[in-house]
Amino acid sequence: MTSLTDLPSQTVPLLQVSDLCKTFPIGKGTSLHAVDHVSFDIRPGESVGLVGESGCGKSTLIRVITRLLDVTSGTIQFDDTILSTVAVRQFPKSPHRKGIQLVFQDPTDSLNPRFTAYDTITEPIKRLEGGHNKAQLQARAAELADLVGLPQELLSRFPHQLSGGQKARVGIARAIALNPKLLVLDEPTSALDVSVQAVILHLLADLKERLGMSYLFVSHDLNVVRLLCDRILVMYLGKIIESGPVEQVFNHPRHPYTEALISAIPSFEAKPHPIPLTGEPRSPINPNPNVCRLYGRCPKGEDKCQQVMPTLKEVAPNHWAACHFHN
């Protein structure tokens, strides 16, 4: 594996997202703001966790980053190249296509029912590298199967003949087939059993070390994010509301939403009652740019939150929060 050699030493970001917006028009003059002025970066070899509720826009954000969706405004810079101007339909021809890959949430839905595991794993090699003969492809598939711990005799099987954990391994093998620099993981373990989840998490940690990839790890399970990530981004209704080193955000959350999220994680240990977020989330359709997105559910909400949208402020070294009451 070539990428073993160029481990990160410089601090130039691998991925730089600035002021990214993605809106979906849903009628005359109204649009759904799925991703609203989001900026962050990922350094080479870094693992960044992205957490948030369903519907907060994290799926849209990663689909924009992996170039499955066009951007509305803002830029995505990957390895000195601006990708946000390349149209989605043109991107398969871009040399950066193999640099950003995605591991899907549902291992069943993301595998073609009529492709064997071998077909699925070799698909990116055939499409994006080309010029391989059958023996070379078989050798690559066997190597990848070993890497993800998939027994080679399963390569000839169709998805419905594989267990959930095995399908997850096939999905990971496909994503790492071309040594991507950035691997985006969309809740890769949420469809799996606890015992299998632990195996896959260890596999992902191991692969990251061996292949030197950067991870953008999307999950709603904070326990899982904490285990695998260096830094965490908390998203709420299209905005990043808190970001920082994972342990620091976990132990000293500065945003009321993060606090509620962390307090709601079920645990074996006795812990105080979860902080309730009452009411329903605000609508992401034409949101008022001056009202904090959490207003109405937030236990700290005041008049000020209705007048000025809080922006991200550095509350501690590398720890940012968007709340008027971050102390």
Binding site: V194, S195, Q197, A198, L201, H202, A205, D221, N223, V224, R226, L227, L228, F250, I262, I265, S267, F268, E269
Partner: peptide
């Protein structure tokens, strides 16, 4: 129990 991720469990 050992396989379940927990707030203070090491990897």
């Amino acid at each position: 129990i050992a396989a379940t991720p927990e707030p203070h469990k090491a990897f």
